Computed example of a mutant assay.
Amino acid sequence: MMPVATIAGQEIRAGLRNRWVVATTLLLGALALSLVLLGSAPTGTVGADPLSVVVVSLASLTIFLLPLIALLLSFDSIVGEQERGTLTLLLSYPVARWQVVVGKFLGQAAIIAIATVIGYGAAAAALAVSTKISPAAWGGFAGMIGSSVLLGAAFVAIGSLASILVRERATAAGLAVGAWLFFVILYDTALLGILVADQGKTVTAGVLDVLLLFNPADAYRLFNMTATEGASVYSGMAGLGEAGRLSPGLLLGALLGWVVLPLVLAILSFRRKQI
């Protein structure tokens, strides 16, 4: 596993050198801090747990931001090396192709994890200094950070797959943007249109649950909106009879599946790729 660790370390060092880690951490930290300041303002009148409010708000914005960052970080991981001519040099060393894919994935996922933990954690610490936070709210916030790392890793895997399937960076960038649009915006829009047109005749509650699991952004959203009682209350999910149909464990399993499946497809595709 030494080649995998070496390649992953090189990706992290490249992220530090290119300011990816710093920029992503500052962006996520500023976003979280702004929501902390806004989310804690109304707690005196409505009695809401400020951290649970922040979890709901931050999860909603993370769905749009973190997948885009992950795709921008990973879309040229292989095709960029190929265009620069360094991929042939890398493969001339005693390293298997799967080790190249896994090493790059782990390094880029680590950048997402570092930025998420530091950026979101710093904002939560700032809130804890001035406000008393319940243990349940801390558990929900930890779950939000962990699921955010999984969401970012899923889109890193999707970006890596896109980078392997094409031969030009511009094409990979187009695929990455298309993937972001599809999973974050178009999928739910199309699903809503189908539900309105179907009127519950074919798309039952069970079918809808399955369809939601086919989108990592939906699995992430549902997990953070229903994982704790406070989050379900403030997100408006507590009053829905079917809100708890998909368990937190199943939703996390779906997110993990979205990490593993694109990564396996990327490994298989890279084995057959002509360099």
Rank of each mutant, 00 (worst) to 15 (best):
R19I: 11
R13D: 14
M225F: 11
I7W: 06
V203H: 08
A109R: 13
T228F: 02
P262L: 00
L90Q: 13
S232F: 03
V95T: 15
A59M: 12
V156F: 00
A219C: 01
A41G: 11
Q82V: 04
L255C: 02
L89R: 10
M1D: 13
Y187T: 01
V22C: 08
L263E: 01
L27V: 13
S74Y: 03
G193N: 09
L150P: 00
I7G: 09
S57Y: 14
T226F: 09
A115Y: 10
A162T: 09
V46D: 15
D188Q: 14
G206R: 10
L192E: 13
D49C: 03
A48K: 03
G257R: 01
P67L: 13
N215W: 05
S163G: 10
S147K: 07
I69W: 00
A126M: 13
M225S: 03
G257M: 03
G139R: 14
L246K: 11
F183M: 14
V210C: 02
V22S: 11
V156Y: 00
T25E: 11
G249N: 12
Y187W: 15
V36P: 12
A115T: 08
V54D: 15
A59F: 04
A70W: 09
F64G: 00
D198T: 14
A113N: 06
A173G: 12
G193S: 08
A14K: 10
V4L: 06
W20A: 14
E81A: 05
G85Q: 05
M2F: 11
F155G: 05
G241W: 06
V259S: 00
G29M: 15
A8G: 13
W98M: 07
G178W: 06
A14S: 13
L186W: 15
V21P: 01
V166S: 07
L31V: 15
S235L: 10
L151G: 04
A109Q: 05
V210I: 12
A124G: 07
L265D: 00
N18C: 02
K273F: 04
V210S: 04
Y120S: 03
A157R: 08
D49S: 15
T171F: 06
T62C: 09
S163D: 06
L27G: 06
T25C: 11
I111H: 05
V21S: 09
T88C: 06
G143D: 09
L186E: 09
G107A: 12
L240K: 12
F64N: 00
S40V: 05
Y220M: 03
S163A: 06
G44W: 00
R84L: 09
G119F: 01
V233C: 02
P248T: 07
L71A: 02
L195G: 01
L16R: 09
F214H: 01
G143L: 15
A115V: 07
P42Y: 02
Y120V: 04
F182T: 15
L37Y: 14
S92W: 04
A110G: 08
G29Y: 13
S34R: 04
T6K: 10
P94Q: 08
I114W: 02
G44I: 00
A173Q: 15
A231L: 06
S60W: 02
G239H: 14
V210G: 03
L73Y: 09
Q274T: 13
A123F: 10
G121S: 11
I112R: 09
I78T: 10
A126S: 12
Q10I: 05
G29N: 08
E242D: 10
I145G: 04
A59L: 12
L61I: 14
G107M: 10
P248M: 02
A231P: 03
